[in-house]
Design a protein around this nucleic acid. Structure first.
Lengths: 251, 251
DNA sequence: CCGGTTATATTGTATATACATAATTGCAGG
DNA sequence: CCTGCAATTATGTATATACAATATAACCGG
């Protein structure tokens, strides 16, 4: 009695929402190859009459597909399946935290710390000007008491003056920065190198052993914050990534 | 005269659309650190009265932020800034095509080709069963007439029977598959290894030279399609990636 | 105090509608 | 034939509205 009679306007068999269904349907046309790159996706009008729903709903589906790079949309032109290269993007989780805190024993040791005016090379790495104040840190990270990774880091003291007084003997500069300093842009480079004598000694591996090197430059509002080189023995560290068409992970 | 009098309902100073403005504003609160992880984002109601717009508009902004992993939303709970680790994802462009066709001279050579019943190891790599029919290919890729990359590939003939009759002496199996076979899931692994004698010989580098190895497993609807190991001399190939908070690249 | 019902807050989905924008097509007038 | 305006098409953005789902809080009878 007290309950107000509710009219169910949309009858969903407890499945995905309509916009997601439409998105999936289109996605599967594309991923199955039925709609090759360049193929014209039906217009919003066609889709709304096909799926018997409002334009906003198909628009949501199409916008999502466009955002994920599966299709390209242009006014008056229509929507078109984009080239695979446009969507072959894979995502890699944060590199630093990765693998370390997987229930294993972790500790780090500060090997070097020096405050200095940027050399020409420092300036290049930070994309700043020589002479700017920088902090150089070298840390050795251990996992289960074995040397795991060697970190060479430059921090721009102009951008992060607080770093001058931070204690990096316990706290890794990476996680300190992550907490203290917001950043909005990062560039990574990943390559393989043979360990030099000093690197080999620090990591307890043979000279020439293949290492995976991750180099990262971080900036905020166009101002460089830090530049870091992480060197992992190649047999221990792997980067893994998995790619799924947009919907799978989100829904 | 003929022109119908048009009322401009929304006065936009030719700037970003409102939902993008709102998104940016919130994003900058988060990226600037003003709203730390766990901080509560104003509710849609608060935002719509603050920005004087409809709920759908703020919803679009918030949904986009949620999709990009900057915030987490829950019914009746509200929206909260997510931990940085949730958003430290970086994107890497397609690995195979990368760098190759950058205006340089490319050619490839088929070194080995064998059709066989899957060994135990083959089956493991393809996540299939021993005895299944597979095609093994080894290709050497040249850029500017220098050996550039060595590819070891397994293709499941059950999933791609057409591969049996394809001519891989000119066409790289990677691009052939990309065109012929839709795929929906891929897993990558990236590591560094010292070149073995045979690899070194093929690539024209010294034995033990550090190589970047990219391993990829591709599947469609849970059925394995191909497994490939790409081996690049470490000094020549680099993976690069750049991360921006969602909006920058799209808008 | 317990246990259930009811109210409420907040996001999720969907619709109908309107106007804006961009680019092409077509037509009219010189 | 060229110019320019108008119509057309398809997407882009925004509003107002309605109902759904979900979890907390408040209330209330026993």
């Amino acid at each position: 009695m007290a309950k107000t009679a509710r009219k169910t306007t949309t009858v969903r068999g407890d499945a995905l929402p309509r916009y997601a269904q439409i998105r999936r349907a289109l996605e599967s046309e594309i991923l199955s190859g039925a709609w090759p790159p360049g193929h014209r996706v039906p217009s919003e009008h066609e889709l709304l009459s096909r799926y018997r729903c409002s334009r906003m709903t198909v628009n949501k589906a199409l916008s999502a597909l466009a955002a994920s790079g599966m299709i390209v949309r242009r006014r008056r032109w229509g929507s078109f399946v984009s080239a695979p290269s446009g969507r072959n993007v894979l995502q890699i989780q944060d590199i630093e935290q990765d693998a370390l805190h997987a229930g294993r024993d972790y500790r780090m040791q500060l090997m070097q710390r020096s405050e200095r005016k940027a050399t020409k090379r420092d300036a290049e790495l930070l994309q700043g000007t020589p002479g700017m104040p920088v902090l150089f840190l070298q840390c050795l990270h251990y996992v289960d008491e074995r040397p795991w990774m060697l970190e060479d880091r430059l921090i721009s003291l102009a951008a992060v003056p607080a770093a001058r007084r931070a204690d990096f003997s316990k706290r890794s500069p990476g996680s300190w920065l992550l907490e203290k300093v917001p950043w909005s842009h990062a560039e990574h480079e990943i390559r393989a190198v043979n360990a030099s004598g000093t690197v080999a000694k620090a990591l307890g591996i043979a000279e020439g052993f293949a290492c995976l090197v991750v180099e990262r430059r971080t900036a905020h509002r166009g101002k460089a914050i830090t530049h870091v080189v992480l060197c992992y023995p190649g047999d221990r560290h792997k980067l893994t990534a998995s790619f799924d068409p947009s919907g799978a992970a989100e829904q």
